[in-house]
Design a protein around this nucleic acid. Sequence first.
RNA 1: GCGCCCGUAGCUCAGUUGGAUAGAGCGUCGGACUUCGAAUCCGAAGGUCGCAGGUUCGAUCCCUGCCGGGCGCACCA
Length: 565
Amino acid sequence: MSRGEAPGTGELPITERLTEGVRTALANAGLPEPETCVWEVPRQAEHGDYATNVAMTLARAARRPPRQVAELIVKHFPSLREVERLDVAGPGFLNVFLSPAWCTGALGEILEVGDAYGRGEGERGRRVRLEFVSANPTGPLVIVSARAAAVGDSLARLLRAQGAQVTTEYYVNDAGTQFEALARSFEARVAQEFGEPAALPENGYPGEYLIELARAYREEGRARPVGAPERERLEHFGRYAVSRILEQQRRILRDYGVEFDVWTSEQRDVRDRHLPEKVLEELAARKLTYEHEGALWFRSSELGEEAGDDKDRVLRRSTGEATYFAVDVAYHHYVKFQSADRVINLFGPDHHGYVPRMKAAMRALGHPPDAFEVLIVQLVTLLRDGQPVRMSKRRGEFVLMEELLEEVGRDAARFTFLTRRHDSPLEFDLALATRQSAENPVYYVQYARARIESIYKQAAEQGIVVPPLGDIDLSPLREGEELAIIKRLLQYPDVAKAAARALEPHRVAYFLQELAGIFHPYYKSHRVIQDDRRLMFARLALCTGVGRVIRNGLELLGVSAPESM
RNA sequence: GCGCCCGUAGCUCAGUUGGAUAGAGCGUCGGACUUCGAAUCCGAAGGUCGCAGGUUCGAUCCCUGCCGGGCGCACCA
């Protein structure tokens, strides 16, 4: 049942057509309509290509046994060219068997849609603000940032592919105590560079990179603000260090394939615009603040069960200075929500205790509960030959994102991060990853695409002229494996859509592995290039479809799909 | 002590809003290159889904308790 989709975006995913069929059948049978109709791909072939439990969920409302509901659906199901047969099975499952002829025809549609295959409209009209990485500009990026960057960037791609308007953002904490600690540390390093005795401050940053930065500073012949007031000196050294460190971070991220639409400065875009003061007034006007012992508190514990925090939080210290929390609330309310109706943040696990107060604040300021989402990207435990590599910025020892990329490569790193759920901790063995890089699943997927290109190259060398894809007769595709591959390709739009909805890129990664996992054996046991021209062209078309979906899928993950490896 | 996340094959992890006989990769063992790329393929072994209850037609999934691991509980960020 087409709804007149815009050209180039393809037909509705197969499951949506089946759902339409079920709704029609229920209406014809005079039964109540379900809110949703969930389709799953059964593990066993005898259970069909798709199955739904809708009859079971509807049994109560229909006041009939599940199997009877299922039988009524079958009886009143409209005749769709997609469907060959409907079965009622087990306690009341509805099993759908797709029509082989329709499937091979659908391959033609996939080829026609091309790089738009798998795109959808589910998120059309939504403006999403997506923030990730946002590491403090106090040092180089480490491994967790690589994970967050992979997840965040892929989420942006997934949401955009579903029609959302996404702004990716890197928030720079270039103010506050950490900024000050950086400035003091750097000032000390510069002094040392000029041969003066200077000690790092108590909570300073001891890493090598500040020494290198100090050398660069001296070589540039900068005028040191010796004797200037402390505030000026810290501003001078802090700004210099932050801008250089950010430059480096941005370069590494770009090499990783991640570019941000917006780099927001806490100082310039929030504090200098006096947004914290403004938001305190707004919260006060809503009677959500109170004074206690000279500080201003937010009644975060009184905002209802779901939105509430376990205690109230300080917004303005007794010194008169706004807390990090207050600045963050202002930043979200005035900056992020000004240009978006959905705000998604990726945080590290050390910030998860921070989430309830932020949610409480967003809700207090009138944003719908689900408009503000936080995804916790769990830690990466780094191992080298089974031994944990401890990471601590304070102690100045860590494994850098740069080193990771050198050792295992961009594609392998991204794919590895994206084959895990973002909220599950991940163990990454560097030595193992390097040694096994040839067997890494990412190459398995990429190889399938490269192989397909290779077939075309081979065909060209033999002087075979392949007709335009649209002119190829696909009906010779009769093998079970061929049909299975096409059916898998047909699942792709549902996978892409579900991954975007659930904010789970790993679904795409697993799908691609499975697709490659049925393509490689097929390639091994069936010749593409052969004397039977009709069959050869049909198989070439099938290969093109596989390559197309692999490319589209890897694109969503930000992983390359080279023509040859 | 309180809160959040996590316990699935030797290891690293999937398991689609509760579905039918729990999967993949790596590792191990045994096979396959004179034919489109062997970064591949074929086969085998490997499980009390942490433990114990509960909810129902049905639980790896939901609820309760316990055990084990991670993280958080600032007028830090």
